[in-house]
C-alpha cells in the first residue's frame, strides 16, 4: 500500500485542464476527491503517470437551482455538501438523503459526485437516484461539450461514456419534473461505511392514489445501475396497493442479474431487490416529497 510516483497538475481553468488531458494522453487521470483513485493506485490496480487535480476549478463546486434547467450540481461538490445543501434539500431531498447513506463521514467530506459517477462501480449510491430522477451529466472536452443521461452513462463495471483522455465531467443536472415522490434506500451490512448489497431508487408521479408515472433504478445487482422498466409498467396507470407494490418488487427481480460475492449470495440479493423495491415505492408514494 504505497502510492507510486506520478506527476501532479492543478490547472486553473477548465480549458487548461482539458488541454492537459489531451497533452498527457491515456496515462493521465483526473483527481476529484481521490477516495477511489488513490486507493486503486495504492493497491496497484491503477498506475497513471499523471494526476490532473480539479481542486482549483472552484466553479465546479457550485450547486444551483434554475427554474428552467433544474438543479445543477458541480462535479466537485462533495457528498456532504450535497447532503447538507439547502437547495438540494428544497428541490430533491431524496438526493440529499442518498448522499448521506454513502460510505462514511470522512469519505463524504472528500469524495465528489463527479468522482462517484466516473468511478462507475455497480454499487455506487448516487446513480440509482439520479437515474430515477432523469438526471444527465455534462462532459466537457477541449472545444465542445456534450450531455449524456446518467441512465446511459454507465457502460460496464468501472466503465462509462466519458472519454478520459479529453473529457471532464463538469456537472450533473436534474431537470424540473412532475415527480411527486422519490427515495433511495440501500441494504448495507453495517450502518456506516458499507457498500450497498442492494440499492433501490424510486420516483413516482401520483395522481391521488393512481400512479401516473414511475421510475425504478436498481444498484449493486447488475454490471451497471439499471432501470427496472417491467416493474415500472406493473404500476403505471394503476391504483397503488401493497399487493401491487409486492408484484412490482417481484417483477424487478427479473430486471437484474446479481452475483454471489462476499457481501451476499445472488439468491439473497434477489430477495432483497423484491423487498427493497416494494419498500422504496411505498416510501416514494407515501412520504410526500421528492
Amino acid at each position: 500500500m504505497y502510492l507510486p510516483d506520478f506527476d501532479y497538475y492543478a490547472p486553473e481553468s477548465l480549458t487548461e485542464a482539458t488541454g492537459l488531458l489531451m497533452q498527457l494522453g491515456t496515462s493521465a487521470r483526473v483527481l476529484a476527491g481521490g477516495t477511489d483513485i488513490l486507493v486503486k493506485m495504492k493497491s496497484g490496480l491503477l498506475a497513471p503517470s499523471a494526476l490532473v487535480s480539479l481542486k482549483n476549478l472552484h466553479e465546479l463546486r457550485r450547486i444551483r437551482w434554475d427554474a428552467d434547467r433544474g438543479l445543477a450540481i458541480g462535479a466537485l461538490a462533495t457528498h456532504n455538501e450535497i447532503c447538507n445543501s439547502a437547495v438540494v434539500q428544497e428541490h430533491f431531498l431524496s438526493l440529499s438523503e442518498a448522499a448521506h447513506k454513502l460510505a462514511n463521514n470522512q469519505i463524504r467530506n472528500r469524495g465528489t459526485i463527479g468522482g462517484n459517477l466516473v468511478n462507475a462501480i455497480p454499487s455506487a449510491d448516487l446513480p440509482p437516484i439520479l437515474i430515477a430522477l432523469g438526471a444527465y451529466v455534462t462532459l466537457a472536452g477541449p472545444n465542445s461539450s456534450r450531455t449524456v443521461p446518467v441512465e446511459s452513462f454507465f457502460t460496464g463495471v468501472s466503465r462509462c461514456a466519458l472519454e478520459p483522455e479529453r473529457e471532464i465531467l463538469t456537472e450533473v443536472v436534474i431537470p424540473p419534473q412532475k415527480t411527486t415522490g422519490s427515495t433511495y434506500i440501500k441494504f448495507g451490512l453495517r450502518r456506516s461505511g458499507a457498500l450497498a448489497v442492494v440499492g433501490v431508487a424510486a420516483a413516482v408521479t401520483m395522481d391521488g392514489n393512481v400512479v401516473r408515472d414511475a421510475r425504478i433504478c436498481l444498484g449493486a445487482v447488475y454490471k451497471v445501475p439499471t432501470r427496472a422498466i417491467q416493474a415500472e409498467q406493473v404500476l403505471i396507470g394503476k391504483t397503488w396497493t401493497n399487493d401491487l407494490l409486492e408484484q412490482a418488487g417481484r417483477t424487478a427481480v427479473g430486471c437484474c442479474l446479481p452475483i454471489s460475492d462476499i457481501r451476499g449470495s445472488a439468491e439473497y440479493r434477489r430477495d432483497l431487490v423484491r423487498i427493497f423495491t416494494r419498500r422504496a415505492l411505498k416510501r416514494a408514494i407515501t412520504q410526500g416529497h421528492v
Binding site: 422498466i229 417491467q230 427479473g254 442479474l257 434477489r270 430477495d271 431487490v273 423484491r274
Partner: peptide, 11 residues
C-alpha cells in the same frame, strides 16, 4: 415462500 431464483428474467 416466493422463490427469488425462479422469476421471469427480462434481461
Amino acid at each position: 415462500i416466493w422463490d427469488p431464483m425462479a422469476c421471469e428474467c427480462f434481461l
